[in-house]
Nucleic acid binder design. Structure first.
Lengths: 211, 211
DNA sequence: GACAGCATGTAACCTGTTACATGATTTG
DNA sequence: CAAATCATGTAACAGGTTACATGCTGTC
């Protein structure tokens, strides 16, 4: 339920409408906690019912400006200092790595190289952004810069990992794919058992998603 | 829709029942793509309807053993080589960093130190696991080791980032919290406007979740 | 007066989580 | 025979996404 806390966090900086919050989410939280318009308006209602925020003023086009209440501040404080964040649980890109033995080594290698390129691109983008942000010396950007740095470091680590993984494949000798399926292997399903007949089992007890 | 592909990936290694898949998810995919029992059985039905898997045999206690079909192999191949993975979008721990200006610097520092400790603990656990896995020299563990290494590197990067962030706070001089709320500041909500009256705005255009 | 932007709200759908419900088989 | 484990299935709910629906206001 972090959406609610993200909203409280933004409202703690000053009153805002649903529309204002939407812009703030798009501009600053898009990569950390995205939210849709629909979600925001629904949650504004719930937060109001719960007494954590209240309508402060009504404006021109049905605009409702919300402010955080004392109860809301307390909830925000509690979340910030007493609730342990839950780590990201799912990683689509890493999931594919588990099944890379199903394609031929060239494709596995290509996959990892695409990961490296994607991470490098993100790293470059964030480095550019950091220059911009650092230049404007906004005191509010202080903590924002911490999260930017996080992004820079994580994308660098991912890039380095993917590059290392490619080297591992190259060094380790080509593994044949366990169960070739290929784009051209379009033989109709015959109902015969697959080449491997042992029950599915784990390759290893796994790594974490990182967080 | 990666659950379906994770299941196809496991079934591509050999036939399995819903129960077998559940064990495989718990043992090897828990930190990359967790799934509940309920989800697995529901999805087995859908995969069967879609013709991507089929019941191969029925066993003792109503056990149904599924195998992947050729169509299923093609779908798996497509997902592995042609679908770009979507990056993790939400990061609960990093979201809090955006709002650390709402608590006093000591609490912000403590928060970052807890992140560093958590990352260090995870790193240590994964290093231990890597030793175990490396010792058994299982050829199937080849790609599994790549994901383990990913976990090790990401937790190291997070740990280093959090340590760096603590240093930044210490060096940068204490910032006063923008809007103190505190656990003791229990004044009833009076309805008066909060100290900051400007509309909520972004601290900066943000960092990425990493992936 | 047209258009961009401000502004709010609802419905349908999908994924995932928790909890409920039930029963067969193997092992000590 | 009791307990652990194997084994499957459904219902209710929560959070998030997409799409629909509507209308006002300021500016060129």
């Amino acid at each position: 339920m972090s959406l609610r806390h993200a909203m409280l966090g933004l409202l703690a900086r000053g009153p805002a409408s649903g529309y204002d919050l939407l812009k703030a989410f798009e501009a600053s939280l898009a990569n950390v906690w995205p939210a849709t318009q629909s979600q925001l308006y629904t949650e504004l209602g719930r937060l109001t019912d719960a007494g954590l925020i209240a309508v402060q003023a009504e404006g021109p086009r049905g605009r409702k400006e919300y402010r955080i209440t004392q109860q809301g501040r307390e909830e925000l404080w509690h979340w910030l200092t007493e609730v342990e964040p839950d780590p990201p649980r799912r990683n689509d890109a890493l999931l594919r790595v588990f099944f890379l033995d199903q394609v031929d080594p060239g494709q596995a290698r290509a996959y990892l190289e695409r990961r490296a390129a994607a991470a490098a691109a993100q790293e470059a983008a964030l480095l550019g952004l950091r220059e911009q942000v650092a230049a404007q010396d906004d005191p509010l950007a202080r903590y924002g810069l911490l999260s930017l740095e996080y992004g820079v470091r994580i994308s660098a680590a991912v890039r380095e990992w993917a590059q290392w993984a490619v080297e591992q494949l190259d060094a380790g000798g080509a593994l044949a794919p366990a169960n070739p399926a290929g784009p051209a292997a379009t033989t109709a399903d015959t109902g015969t058992a697959s080449p491997a007949d042992s029950p599915a089992h784990a390759a290893n007890p796994s790594a974490a998603t990182g967080g």
